[in-house]
Design a protein around this nucleic acid. Structure first.
Lengths: 147, 147
DNA sequence: GCAATAAGCTTGCAGATGCAATGATATTGC
DNA sequence: GCAATATCATTGCATCTGCAAGCTTATTGC
């Protein structure tokens, strides 16, 4: 197996494992899923804390219908709002509310804690920095880079 | 944001993006999903090309019921077989068949091609090697390391 | 201007997945 | 040996997701 294939496999496996661990913690502690956390995070990183649904779908690698259905309950509990575009009545923005920001901050603590566990053993600053640089290159081209 | 959190975010985002690209190719070309590909891969890496369902579930980070339901159609089309344990009648092994191996080899070509695209631009051998080492550490402790 | 096309969002439907309950078999405590 | 407990696999149910169709609104071609 060539090294590129090895890297692709390890990337997917490492990501899956981290996601699995986060998944339990997020639903138990915060009542939102990892995907919902990412949705909030994308909005927080965006101008005016809002994004058109199509754009959000692209950044999250999900379909437009999934965005519609993910946003509905979050809007219901006040974490998200809805805005319309003045010039284009087709566009419907998803907006992060103040309550949404609060929830996001809480969830970020859990995320950071889990990240700490993941890299706590025998990782030097230099290694963390090198990994960040290499992974950074992989996500550099994407529209929805959260880092 | 600390560097550990940055790395965790980038790991998840890079994994998601690669998975999204693989997803379309796999279903279109081979008629199996990325998850089904991983199922075949886990079996191929195992002794006697077989695993108990519970063990397969752990390695894939899915529930036991998902293994039952993923294996059923693959068994129906002949990619997987079923074996029982002589000593423990509760155990039901999932076995990779010859047709399954053939399908796996086909799918591996697609995976390797996508891995090549992912790392084709300005990645030196040294960088690929370093990334492999760092990601390797993340997946080292897991029971189902595919590399 | 108006018809044709495109784009954004939502909804119906089908497939995938997890949790909890169930049934079958093993193991343990006594 | 037998009852209590644990383990493995499956199934019912609820949830999440994508695709295709449909509705609304913009844009384009003429």
């Amino acid at each position: 197996m060539d090294i590129q294939t090895t890297n692709a496999l390890r990337l997917l496996q490492a990501g899956d494992e981290l996601r699995a661990k986060l998944s339990g913690e997020f639903s138990a502690i915060h009542g939102i899923s990892v995907n919902e956390y990412f949705l909030l995070l994308h909005l927080e990183k965006s101008a005016r804390n809002r994004l058109a649904r199509v754009e959000l779908a692209k950044r999250m690698h999900v379909s437009a219908s999934t965005v519609t259905r993910m946003a509905a309950p979050l809007e219901k509990i006040g974490l998200l709002g809805r805005e319309v575009d003045e010039r284009d009545a087709r566009l419907s923005y998803v907006v992060l509310t103040k309550a949404g920001k609060t929830k996001l901050i809480e969830a970020q603590a859990t995320f950071t804690k889990r990240a700490g566990y993941t890299f706590q053993d025998r990782w030097t600053e230099e290694e963390l920095s090198k990994l960040s640089e290499l992974l950074g290159r992989l996500v550099a081209g994407t529209a929805g880079n959260l880092t």
